[in-house]
Amino acid sequence: MANAVPRTLDEWEKPLRDLEDGITKLKAVAVKEKDDSRAADLKYRIQELQRRHDNYLEVMYSQLGPWEKVLVARAPNRPYMLDYVNQVFEGFVELQGDRRYGQDHAIIGGPAKLNGSPVMVVGHQKGRTIQERQLRNFGYARPEGYRKAIRLFELAQRFSMPVVTLVDTPGADAGLEAESRGISEAIAASMLKMFSLTVPIISVIIGEGGSGGAIGIAIANRVLMFEHSIYSVIAPEGCAAILWRKPEMGPQAAEALKVTAESVLSFQLIDQIIPEPTGGAHRDPASAAQSLKVSLLSNLAELSSLSGPELLNDRANRFRNLGVMAIH
C-alpha cells in the first residue's frame, strides 16, 4: 500500500481494485481458453485471487481507522437518503417548500409507510452527478431546509406519525445568503421543535454527521449510527485548520475528535450501531437497507409503549445527562 495517507476512498481501496482488475483479466482469458488443463489452472488462479480479494476486503474493513471511516462515510457511491427511502419505506411522497422563502434540496422529506404504518421521513440528500450535487448544494442545507423540516415535524405531530430522520451532511450552509436568512436560528428552531413533539423520533446517522447541520435534525428518542458513518462537532479538516493551521492534518484531527460510531457509542452519545455488510454499505446497499429497516422497526416497537408526554420526557432526559465533567 502507498505510504501517503489516502485522501479518497478510491485511493484507499486501490489494492482491492488491482485485485479486481486481475480477476477480470484472468476471466477474459479463461473464456477463450480451449485447453482443459490450462482452463482448470486459470479457474484455480481466479478462485485464489478472489479468495485473496475477499480476505483483504474483510481485513481492511474490520480495521478501519477514524480517517478511513471518514473516507467511507463520504464515499460518493455510499447509499444516500433516497436510496434507503426507496428500499425501506413504501409510497414516499416528497413534500416541499418551507412556506417562508424558498426551496432547499439538501434537506428533503415527506410521509411514507414503514411496514404498512405511516411515518414522516426527513433527511439530508446528497447528489452523485455534477448537476445533482449542485441541486443538493453538496449536502449543505440552507435555512429553508431546516424550516421545511420544522413544517414536516409539525405535520407528523398533527397526524400522529413517528418521525425518522436520516442524517448525512458535511455541515450546514455557511454562506452569505444562509447567514442573511438566519441559518443559526433555523437549526436551533428545528432542534427546539423536535424537543416539543409527542410522537416517537428516531434519528440515524447514515453517512456524515457534520456538526450543527447534523444535530439540527438529530434530536430523537433513539439515535443510531451506521457502522462506518461518522459524527463530529466539526469537520476534521476544519478542526485541523483552526487548531494547527494545517487543514491537511485532517487524519490526525479525525483521530483526536473520536468521530467513529464505536467511539461515539463508548461515550453513550448514541444508542445503537447498525452493522454494515462486509466492505461497507456501498458494496451491498440492499443488505444495508434491510439492516436499517430491522433497526427502525425494533426501536419503534420499543417506543410504542410510551405515551406522548412520556416520549417528550424520554427525549429531554436522553440529552439532559450528556457531558463529562469533574468536580473541583
Partner: peptide, 14 residues
C-alpha cells in the same frame, strides 16, 4: 471535547 460539545447544543436547547 468533540461530539460531547455538539451534544451541549441539544441539551441547552431542550
Amino acid at each position: 471535547e468533540g461530539l460531547l460539545s455538539l451534544m451541549q447544543m441539544a441539551k441547552t436547547t431542550s
